[in-house]
Simulated scan of single mutants.
Amino acid sequence: MKTDLFLVTPPFTQLNTPYPATAYIKGFLNTKNISSTQADLGIEVILALFSKKGLEDLFKHAETHNLQSLSPNAKRITALRQEYVKTIDNVIAFLQGKNPTLALQICQGDYLPEASRFNQLEELDWAFGTMGTQDKGKHLATLYLEDISDFIIECVDPNFGFSRYAERLGRSANSFDELYSALKHEYTYMDKLLIAILEQKLAIIQPKLFLISVPFPGNLYAAFRSAQYVKKHYPHIKTAMGGGFPNTELRSLSDKRVFEFFDFISLDDGELPVELIYNSIVSGLPFNLFKRTFLLENETVTYRNDSLRSDYKQSDVGTPDYSDLQLDQYISVIEIVNPMHRMWSDGRWNKLTMAHGCYWGKCTFCDISLDY
């Protein structure tokens, strides 16, 4: 379905729940009767990769690697490739909560192929007792996925990570050189998966504005790759970036090469900046007002904050809208048996804003320099 905006979270954030930024923006756009579609490209890439066809293609691609130089662990995984291909769809369905009875088979110890991650097994009876079959199964299935991840990092793409991709490039935000150089290279294996999914969606949605939320450094490379593809193949679509990463790392942006990929980069609260960016695209007027937005004017990076309108109050931004997101496809994993570490990766989160700052603003950890 065609919509005016396409809101995207690039790979990768969490496996178990969508990052809520696009849902918040979509909820706000609903109050303005602006049509939008959202997608979490991270979970879609993961599901394309960790599937029967995905692993078949992965192992076939890895055959180009010099087998003699592989670590013993990678050689073991290669030898067990048919077992991984045979079990992957069932394991993913189990972690999605769609096949709970598989826990019994997993816990028996002869269902999953095992590589180096299983060498680090803690005392599982201590962690899960004799009855915690579901949790124990999740933990073992997580180790199984991490074995495959180790194989990907060694043989296919060293930048891969379940909750981040090429994070190293995003952390060097003081210079765009390294990231810009990486974007000039051929597509990586993960890039090809990402672009294939993105192309399908763009062909259907045909937006006027492609809006990418970048919460963490581990999302930055994929955000630029996505915007690069849009600029090359859909030059009429405007691209914009917002989110936690630009809010903290790009406040003094000056490198105009960034605007080869993005037309707009907005800071802090996104509702009003996005509305004004959208209005500027729709109106077609030569001069428009913006709110906390970087753009390129006369070949110069310009920070525009000339709109006199105030940010929307929390009561006026609408309700987060999670439609379009594949909520039944997320996978719950247990990486560490300590229950205190499970909140990040196990189970669905429904994130809601309960407060937006306070009247006092004097706690030492509070960044009171932000203008909202």
Rank of each mutant, 00 (worst) to 15 (best):
L193S: 04
P158I: 04
A115Q: 01
F160L: 10
I153H: 00
L183V: 09
G109V: 07
P158M: 07
C155S: 13
D150L: 14
T130H: 04
K192C: 10
G129T: 05
G137C: 05
E154T: 08
I205F: 01
Q134I: 15
Y144R: 03
D110F: 07
Y187S: 10
F210A: 02
L102T: 04
P207E: 04
S149F: 10
L211Y: 09
L179P: 07
T133H: 13
G109W: 04
A173K: 08
T130Y: 07
Q120G: 13
L121K: 11
S149C: 14
R117Q: 15
T142C: 11
E178L: 06
A127D: 09
K201E: 12
E123F: 11
E178G: 01
D177G: 00
K138N: 12
Q105M: 12
R117F: 12
P158C: 08
F162N: 05
E186P: 00
Y111T: 10
G97V: 12
E154I: 06
D110W: 06
I148R: 06
F118L: 10
I148Y: 07
A127P: 00
R117W: 10
Q120L: 14
A127Y: 06
K136S: 03
D110G: 03
L145V: 09
L211A: 13
K184A: 14
Q206S: 10
I197V: 04
F162D: 07
A196E: 15
C155T: 14
D177C: 02
N174I: 08
A103W: 02
Y180R: 09
K184T: 09
T188F: 01
V156N: 01
A115F: 01
M190A: 08
N99C: 03
E114A: 14
G129A: 05
G170K: 04
G132W: 00
R171P: 08
T142H: 06
A103K: 12
I205L: 02
E122R: 11
Q105E: 14
G161D: 14
N174G: 01
T133I: 11
G97Q: 11
Y165E: 03
Y189R: 05
Q134N: 15
W126L: 15
P158E: 12
E186C: 04
P100G: 07
F160V: 05
H139G: 09
Y111F: 15
L193E: 07
G161T: 01
A173W: 15
H139S: 05
F176L: 15
A141F: 03
I197N: 13
I204G: 02
L124W: 04
N99G: 02
N119D: 15
Q134S: 15
F128Q: 01
F128I: 01
D135G: 13
F128H: 03
D147S: 12
K138A: 07
E146I: 13
E123G: 04
L121Q: 07
